[in-house]
């Protein structure tokens, strides 16, 4: 009976609607199960093994992979470095992205706002690897950036930043800045201009309006942007490799090595799972603020 009334269907209880929903839901969720949820479970399982069971070698359950993290300070130090890198990149993105979003949302109007917004978001839609590579060209000593700066500035500067920590930060900020602009823009735009005008006409200084009105109201955007940046940067490996050279050993690059160079997959799985725990803690800490906004 295809012509059943909706209210009639609802009155027969929620259980009955599983049947028509299932064929539509099953393909998508089956795919997600096979390609995301089962792999994550398998990784959790492997992280407690001495060897991959497929390699034919004898294997046993062990806690050694996790013990390695806690016994050798090497991994913990790298994780700390990666967390610091992520914090620095997030802060720079907030410092640069928030004012930019403010200008876009509150100062620019009409077509110029639309055009500049598009220009800010545009690089975001191109390949991230290629953008990091472009910095590798720009930051070379005696390169174009170096020469241009020395031609403009009255004093000599040396911007041979390639293969250094600042190069990694610059590349990562460049990659993730559009996230911050986007999330801040969305919350800033939702602030009613008359609120700001009212505060100003009641005698609040610009700084007070910023501190007491604009920042608290746009906090969800700042937090959402920070989470979107912090989480992938903690696990980044491609950017430190390309821009950091020897200075580019981080937690992510060590995990990459376990899978593509050292072939110690169980250790790699354990390190990945520790990273996942860190990520979940961050997401859990941010969720109350994000929920309040939603």
């Amino acid at each position: 009976m295809p012509q059943t009334d909706v209210s009639q269907r609802a009155s027969t209880g929620p259980r009955s609607q599983w049947r028509p929903a299932l064929p539509l839901l099953l393909p998508a969720y089956l795919w997600l199960t096979v390609a995301i949820f089962l792999p994550l479970s398998a990784m959790a399982f492997f992280s407690f093994m001495t060897e991959l069971p497929l390699s034919g070698k004898p294997w046993a359950f062990t806690l050694a992979n996790y013990a390695a993290f806690f016994e050798k300070s090497f991994y913990a130090v790298l994780l700390r470095d990666s967390l610091r890198l992520a914090l620095e990149v997030t802060l720079w993105c907030a410092l640069l992205g928030f004012p930019c979003a403010y200008v876009l949302a509150k100062i620019l109007k009409g077509r110029s706002r639309e055009a500049i917004f598009l220009l800010v978001i545009l690089p975001f839609w191109s390949n991230g690897l290629v953008r990091v590579f472009s910095w590798a060209i720009a930051l070379r000593g005696n390169g174009l950036l170096d020469r241009t700066l020395n031609a403009i500035l009255p004093f000599q500067v040396n911007v041979d930043l390639m293969f250094s920590y600042p190069a990694i930060v610059i590349g990562l900020v460049h990659s993730y800045l559009p996230y911050m602009v986007l999330t801040c823009y969305l919350t800033l735009q939702a602030i009613d201009d008359s609120l700001i005008e009212a505060a100003r006409s009641l005698g609040a200084s610009r700084f007070t309006v910023l501190r007491r009105l604009i920042i608290p109201l746009s906090l969800p955007g700042l937090v959402a942007g920070s989470v979107l940046i912090f989480v992938p940067v903690v696990g980044s490996f491609m950017e430190p490799r390309i821009l950091g050279g020897r200075a580019g050993t981080f937690y992510g690059t060590v995990i990459e090595d376990q899978f593509v160079a050292v072939f110690n997959w169980p250790l790699g799985a354990a390190l990945s799972f520790i990273l996942l725990a860190v990520v979940l803690i961050i997401l859990g800490a941010a969720s109350p603020i994000l929920k309040r906004a939603a």
Binding site: L32, A42, M43, L54, G235, A269, S272, F273, V279
Partner: peptide
């Protein structure tokens, strides 16, 4: 629950998802 299950693939860094897929697909 089904809606909530959409977020892990977006939120978990690709490094973790990618290495997990490698292990499972290989296995």
């Amino acid at each position: 629950l089904l809606r909530a299950l959409l977020f892990p693939p977006i939120a978990i860094p690709w490094l973790i998802t990618g290495t997990a897929m490698l292990i499972f697909f290989f296995g």
